[in-house]
Amino acid sequence: MASLRDLRRRIRDVGKIKQITRAMQFVAASKLKRAQDATLNARPYAEAIDEVLADVAAVLSGEDHPLLGTPEKGKRLIVLFTSDRGLAGPFNTNTIRFVARAITEHQGDLAVVAVGRKGRDALRRARVPIEAYFDGFGDRPSFADVVPLARLVTDDYRSGGYERIDLVYSQFVSTLVQRPALEQLLPVKPSEDTKGIPGNQFIFEPSPSAVLEQLLPRYVAQRLFQAVLESKASEESSRMVAMRNATDNADDLIDDYTLEYNKVRQTSITREMIEIATGAQAR
């Protein structure tokens, strides 16, 4: 049984940890509101440009732009989005397990571009080839932050080095639900529902190649930016929930230590009273 001094020290130490986790919970909650608003506001634009490019890809081919065509051979590239920091609950673990399963199931050459230190470290331990690494884009990612990543991915695909590029990130569903997702980035996937597409009635000025030369790089950057926003909102949501659970667990632990402290103290008082009474009777 622990002594009274040990129990007091444990209660004090757990109380300090509780203060830290509570502060981290409130900070994550404030960041979550900003990240959630940015993610939800960007979704309509991302969905609209996805729909437009899918319709365009259904009526054009790789002859009009390289990003619409599929190279005859090449590796598969996965762009993995994780966080730089830990203490985010199962956020990083679930995403890394998800991409590890996708890598295991893939037959053929494969490479990864890691965004975030946690994903990079996990891939290094698994000896997965990393083509490039980017730090996380901070608490307030901007569209300009993902432009270098978009340029790298686009140039590598146009050079014929990859036959397919996928995105793996944690999709923000709600405060309590974040779901790992794998989406194809390149080549642009044509729309399966072609009934509403006007076929060759698209009019491109000055030419399809000139229009797509401006549109497709923006599409790639927007898809990457949306993945960054989704991942950031998922990270802060998972961290807030994890810190709240840690704070609740600290409260429970303090209650258990306090109860044990009172029991030990009561036992000590009872023993001292018995010793005093026994000594008085001996006189």
Rank of each mutant, 00 (worst) to 15 (best):
G138V: 09
Q107K: 13
S159A: 11
E260T: 15
E275G: 02
P71F: 00
A210I: 14
M243R: 07
D166V: 10
E105W: 02
A144Q: 11
K189F: 05
E205Q: 13
S191H: 02
A277S: 09
T278V: 09
L68P: 01
S234Y: 00
V241L: 14
Q36R: 11
K75G: 11
R179S: 01
S268N: 11
S83N: 06
S83A: 13
T154G: 11
A48V: 07
V56E: 01
A250F: 06
L176E: 10
T194S: 04
T95F: 00
D252V: 09
R158Y: 04
G86W: 03
A126T: 14
E183T: 10
R22G: 05
G196Q: 04
R124A: 10
K195D: 09
R9M: 14
A42M: 06
D84S: 13
A221D: 03
D121F: 08
V56T: 01
A126S: 14
D145A: 04
K33Q: 05
L216N: 03
E47G: 08
A282P: 06
K31N: 09
V177K: 06
A282K: 15
F225L: 14
A150D: 02
I103N: 00
L253A: 13
E235S: 02
V177N: 05
A144H: 06
Y133S: 08
V128A: 10
A250E: 04
G138H: 02
A210M: 12
V113A: 11
L7Y: 00
A250C: 15
L32E: 00
A277R: 07
V211L: 13
L87D: 15
A42S: 07
L7F: 07
S207C: 04
T258S: 15
A132S: 11
I254L: 09
G138E: 08
S231E: 07
P217D: 05
P217G: 07
K31P: 01
M24W: 00
A102G: 06
K118Y: 07
Q266Y: 04
A88H: 00
